[in-house]
Amino acid sequence: MESFSFKYPATKNISQRAHIGVVGSGDLEILISPSEIDQTEFVIRTASDGFKQTWKAVFDRFTALNDFKAVITINDFGATPGVVSLRLAQVIEIANQN
């Protein structure tokens, strides 16, 4: 297991906290909570060691398209970057529902 975090500057609020996914084979769970600080913070624990750069690439892309002041907690059990991006899109959608 590896743990790390990344921070990106952010300006917009999300409507509510949200949760998606399961820490099951090839999947992950994501928790998103609103933050007072002007940043998107990703906090990751992953079962697959040695992929920090891949995570960074996924978040670089995500934050280039999304601007949210939030803490995003990820518990990963071997999800591929495609699954990670899909889950991020899903959780953002729920977090911005009214």
Binding site: H19, V22, V23, L31, T73
Partner: peptide, 19 residues
């Protein structure tokens, strides 16, 4: 998931917990 009651026994064994 947001109540913070995950297992404290998994991470010390290198296993990712669930919220």
């Amino acid at each position: 998931p947001f109540d913070g009651m995950e297992s404290p026994h998994l991470a010390p064994q290198g296993i990712v917990p669930e919220s």
